[in-house]
Each structure stands twice: as C-alpha cells, then as structure tokens.
Write a protein that binds this DNA or RNA. Structure first.
Lengths: 384, 384
DNA sequence: CTTATGTTACACGCAAAGTGTAATTAATCC
DNA sequence: GGATTAATTACACTTTGCGTGTAACATAAG
C-alpha cells in the first residue's frame, strides 16, 4: 500500500465519510479568507460563484466547527445590515514544519491562520538521524508548551529535506544527510511523531512559503530561486506547486554542465571565496544578516557567476514563462539585487513588440522559508 | 468584455443553465472512454470513484444526448449479465482545426470520437489574410460535403498560429503572418466562421495532439519539442497543457542567446545547409518524407547543433522534470534519432543513484500535428 | 432630535440536482 | 438450476439555488 498522509488525519478534523476535511466550496472560501483576512461575509459572493445564502450556510458550518471566526463588522461600510468579518481561526489547528538542511534542522510551528507560533533550529553537527529526531521532538514539545497549545489541535507535520526526489517519500540528500536518504520518510516520521507527515523537497516548501505568504498572494505563475548552500528552486503554476514527472521540477542546478556547475550561484562558493579573501563568514545565516556588497570578492564572484545565472534565468523564462522570478532561500537582499542588475533577457522584439518578461522580485520572507513552507503544507493540503 | 469561446457554444450542445456542456463527472467519464474506447459500462466503476448505479445513470443521459454510443457486449467476459461497450459518438459533433504556419495553412476536420474526417492545406504564398480565410472557408465546405456532415453538428474551431502570445487572443507571428499578428483573432475568426474559436500557439496545439493521440495516452508529464521552420514546443503537466504566466510556456528557443540561436535545431537551417550542399529540398514536408541521414551536410549540421540541443534538453529536464521528451513537429524520425543518440544528461549520481531521467520518444503522429491538435481543442475544452 | 424610507444583508424554508444505498430483475456461466 | 454479475428501479441524503420575510443601518424629511 502507498503511504498517504491524508489517510492519517485525526477523525475529529474530518468532515465527510470520504475522509475529506473540507468540501471543494469550503476550500474555495477558506482560500479567499486566507488571501483576504477580515473580509466581510457579504463581500464573499462577489469573489466566489456562490449565492449569499450558500455563503451564509457554509460560513455557519465552518464557524460551528471552529475553522473560521466571526469578527465585528467593519464600520462605515455604507448602509444595510452590517456583515461580520471573517478570519481563519488559529485555535482550530496547528502544524509543525521541519526542514532538514545539510547543517541545521529548522522547526516552525504555525496555526491554521498562518501565524507563526514559534521557531527553533537544531545544529546537526554529527548527530545521527535518531538523535536529531529526538532533539526535534524535545524542541517541538518546548515550543508547544511555551505557546500553550492543546495537543488535540496538532494537525500534522510538513517535512522538508534538501535533495532530490527518488520515489514515494524517498529523497536523495547531500552527504551530511546520508542517513536520511533513500528511505521512506513518510511512514517513518508519521510513526515517530504520531501525526500525518507530508514530505517535500526543501526548495519546494520554500516555494510554497512564497506562494502563501509572499508574491503568491498577487501572482499566480512564478518561479522561485532558492539560494542556499546549494542552488535549487520551485515553480508555481496557476497558484499550485508544479512537481513534475518525478517530483523534481525546479531543480534548476541541472541546467549546468559539470564545468559551468562550478560557476553556478550557490552560496557555498561565495562563502569559500569570502573566507579566502579574509572575510570571516562562519555560516550562510551569518552572511545573510551581515552582508556587505563591498566585501572583497563579492563583485568578482557575482561577475563570474553572471553568465551561468543569465543562462538559468533565460531557461526558466523560456520553459515555463513565469510572471515573476522570486529571489529567495537565504540570499542577502543586496546580493540578489546585484544579480538582478546584471540580468539580460535573450529576446529580440518582433514588430517592436517584446515577449512579455517576468518581473524580478526579492523575497521578503525573513525567516526560514523552507520550514515555514513546510508548516503550511498540511493545511494547504487539507484546508485551503 | 473579455472574449470567451465557451460563451459562443451553440445552445443545443449545452446542458445546464450555467452554459456547461458536461458536468465534471460526465467529463471524467468521457475522458475514460476517450482513453479506452470500447470499455464496458461495468468496468467504469473500477476506474472512476462512482457507483455502478451512478455510472448507469450518467451513461444513460449521455447516450440520450447522443454523446456516447452503446455497442454490443464483449463476449466471453465471465458470468453475469453482459455489459454494453461504450464509445464516443462521432456523429454528435465535429470540429475544425486550422493551423496557420509561415508557408501554409493546415486544415483538419475531426469528429467527437477523435476520428479525422478530412484534411487539407492551403499554400499561403502572397495571400492576404482575408483571401486566405476565404480559401479556408471554401476548403472547409468541401471537406464537410465530402464527409456528408450536418452543419448543426459543427461544434467549433481550434485555431493555431505560429508565434508567441501577447495577450487575449493576440499573437506575434513571423513576417509572412504579419497581417495576422497583434490582432484579436478570437472575435475576428468566430465572427467570420460563425462558430466559437479557441486560439492557441501552433507548437502548443501540436503538444495537445501528442497528449490526446500519442504518448499522452500513457504519460502524464511530458515536454514536446516542435521542430518546424523554427523551433518551439509545449509542456503537459498532469495531463494538462501548461500555458505559463503569459501563455508562452514551452517556447524553448528563448533558452538560446543571440549567438547560440544560430546553432539551434530549427529545420530552416538544415534546409539551407542541404540546399547549399546541392541537395534539392524544396520544403520541410518534402524533407520529412524523403529524409536521408547520408545526405551531405546532415551529420555535420547535427554535430553543430548538438551543444545547443543538449543545453536545451538539460534545461527542460531541470526546470520541469518531465517523464518523457517527445520529438515532434515536422522532424524526420531518423533525424530525431540522430539527436537522441547524441543526448548527454548533465547529472552526477549521488550514492550511486541518478535523478530519474526522461525517456526520449519520437512522435508517431504522421500528419499535421498542429492542425490535428487544434481540432481537438474545442472538444477538450468542452467535453473531456 | 425624531421618524419615515430606502438599502443591504441575515436567516429560514423549500425545491432541484446529483449521488449513494438498497432492493429487484435479467442475462450468462458452471 | 444455482451462482454470479450487472442492469434497473426506488428512495434517501447532501448540497446548492431560489424565494421570502426580517433585522440593522444610512439618509433625509419633518
């Protein structure tokens, strides 16, 4: 039997005999509220193809289940009976995002409304998988206690791992995560944490974070570049993550041949270069916080990676034609801007008209996008 | 108001007050019958999440409307009451695919079951758009008469044009199609032909043809390479065409910079080369029929385009990770094989495990894939 | 300031559509 | 002829749209 996180959802969250948490119309409504928190009930009809009566009923049922909360009406909203405002009720459920990177495991606790309830990280050092998971469990319990959470509201876990998909819930991760590689993570983790676990690639959960909290609120088609120790990314098409035929869509590093691969924009190379030049940069997160474009070697490195970078940008544009390309992962905003300034689109106009080009946007997600995205995955899969 | 082909569908095809031709469950059923013509009614339940009774009812209604036809039961199918076989009823509707290329306009007449009822082509030479359309209309009428069709069954038109999408139903096509460029083709053509017209890029309709008649019957994620005078393509993700943020997903030529663009695998360059070498190749369709890999210059040209070709293949693989890459358009099978033989995937294994790679498949669609795909578009949009 | 009027949305009941469950009937195999 | 499988038919349940009366508020007349 194929592992399925959906089948493990606790019964008190489930609505119908088919095991669904919400119906399609309910999902559409919850999505709308996600994108417009505090929208009034009466405004819903204008955005969704449902009558006022149906909206009333669905809202009524979702309120009764504690999934959405009614708020005071907006004042001064014209005449007529005032309509209550709607929000997702964070108290109904919370989820945990776990992001396994080469150096660190990030943890993000989030409620149904998208509020971050707590964050933590565990340095991997030489920890075995079992030891690391034990530490995650302890950290999770601490976060839960500090936030005063009721365990019954613990909906599930989103697990992100650096590396490519091999099949099922098996991934092939870089060396420090050797022990985490090529095994069925879904059954293992859901057994260990006693909750359904959704497993994804780390760059893809970063992409999901961007789609739920960042530019995805306004843009339906975009590519997300995840600059980390390595370099990957993800694609959002029509608001949904594109997984591809083998679950590895957005692994942009595959564009480069062996030679060019050394000049790809992975932050490991920049850190090496900086350390060679006498700039003490102990970690990627340190670099992100303290980045200075005048550090010796920065401009040089950027110039070196620019050809490979531009090839990648043009490949993404040609293949999937996104409306935007988002610079994310752990890239310092200033470094992203340097790349954007050097972007060249290979395009010749016809009749003076260019092919529409993507906008280049620097992600505004400050925390661990990968863990944050992992935390929404359970909700996105079941609620909205 | 935005142009919409759906809104122009003749009332006698429409089912519900919302203007839909079939309900979602009916669509699922029709798709299943499309992929398995002659499936027995009792087998349906195993493939779709519907009870035998619901299947009976839906089949009953679709039969009453003349959309599907019941056939004699398969003999020797075990005990129990024999179950009738199901097919799409071609008589219910036919559609016309029109593919405007730089040199020729292809026409394809197709019925609801996917059977080709007739084909024609019109050389463009120096024809104005109005003259070309008049000729198309005449050719269409001839094909209709020859096939003995009832005009009431004429469902709509799929129109394909070489060039990139600019917005709405406007495209930017190469010079011979200057007059067809940057205008709203949808309203213009639907007015002229008095039927709803769905407008797409030509490489994309070729992709749709492959998804409906070719490898798409077995593969849910694939990239389609359309080798024509120019070079383009399209993407199928989870069985559906990926359009991208501006409607230009799959315009693979955009991968190449100005310099490399001259060594991209567009057949115009091969023909030039062959003619220089004294091989008389008057047209692409001639080359397709009579291709000989031993013609002077063929191997040379293939070697020259191989680097750009491999970059493109790896870019497609990295970005969208398809299960298969299909060689289509008007490429001679032998030429496609020469490229496949030279394919190199930029991938280093980790723990001895490679990232899953796409299969390379030569399209088996012999006729004008672009017009053929254009012809199914109306049906795909409304029925399955 | 009070009151009448118009507007907007709430909230309830009912009908229609579509699906699942259950029971009966029909055709075929062993 | 009994077993088996699927075709039919009947009925219940869910979800949605429609109709309608009511509640709350804005505005302007008095």
């Amino acid at each position: 039997m194929q592992y399925s996180a959906e089948a493990l959802i606790a019964p008190h969250f489930v609505r119908s005999p088919e095991g669904l948490v919400v119906s399609p119309n309910e999902r559409a409504l919850l999505r709308l509220i996600w994108r417009n928190p505090g929208i009034s009930r009466s405004e819903i009809t204008g955005h969704i193809d449902l009558t006022q009566q149906s909206v009333y009923r669905i809202v009524d049922q979702l309120t009764a289940r504690g999934i959405i909360a009614l708020g005071a009406p907006k004042p001064g909203h014209g005449r007529g009976q005032p309509s209550p405002t709607l929000r997702l009720d964070g108290k109904h459920a919370y989820a945990c995002g776990i992001s396994a990177n080469t150096d660190v495991v990030g943890i993000c606790l989030m409620d149904l409304s998208g509020r971050i309830l707590g964050e933590a990280s565990i340095a991997l050092r030489e920890l075995s998988m079992a030891e690391a998971l034990d530490e995650v469990k302890i950290a999770l319990a601490q976060l839960e206690q500090r936030a005063g959470l009721d365990r019954r509201a613990f909906f599930g876990i989103g697990f992100a791992i650096a590396g490519y998909h091999v099949g099922g819930t098996r991934y092939n991760a870089p060396l420090p995560l050797h022990e985490w590689s090529l095994i069925e993570l879904g059954p293992l983790l859901s057994e260990y944490f006693d909750r359904p676990v959704w497993v994804h690639n780390g760059a893809n959960t970063g992409t999901i974070a961007e789609s739920m909290f960042g530019v995805g609120r306004h843009v339906r088609h975009f590519a997300y570049l995840s600059f980390n120790y390595g370099f990957g990314g993800g694609l959002i098409s029509d608001g949904e993550l594109l997984v591809g035929g083998n679950g590895n869509a957005g692994e942009f590093s595959g564009i480069f041949d062996v030679e060019e691969s050394k000049r790809r924009p992975a932050l490991q190379y920049l850190i090496e270069r900086l350390n060679q030049n006498g700039v003490e940069v102990p970690s990627i997160s340190y670099m992100r916080k303290n980045f200075d474009r005048n550090w010796p070697g920065v401009t040089e490195w950027v110039e070196e990676v620019t050809p490979a970078y531009n090839r990648m940008i043009n490949a993404v544009r040609a293949v999937v034609d996104p409306q935007a390309i988002v610079f994310g992962g752990q890239v310092p905003a200033d470094l992203a801007q340097m790349l954007i300034d050097r972007t060249r689109i290979f395009d010749r106009p016809r009749y003076g008209v260019h092919r529409p080009s993507p906008k280049f946007i620097i992600s505004e997600i400050a925390t661990d996008a990968s863990a944050m995205g992992a935390a929404v995955v359970p909700f996105k899969s079941a609620f909205y």
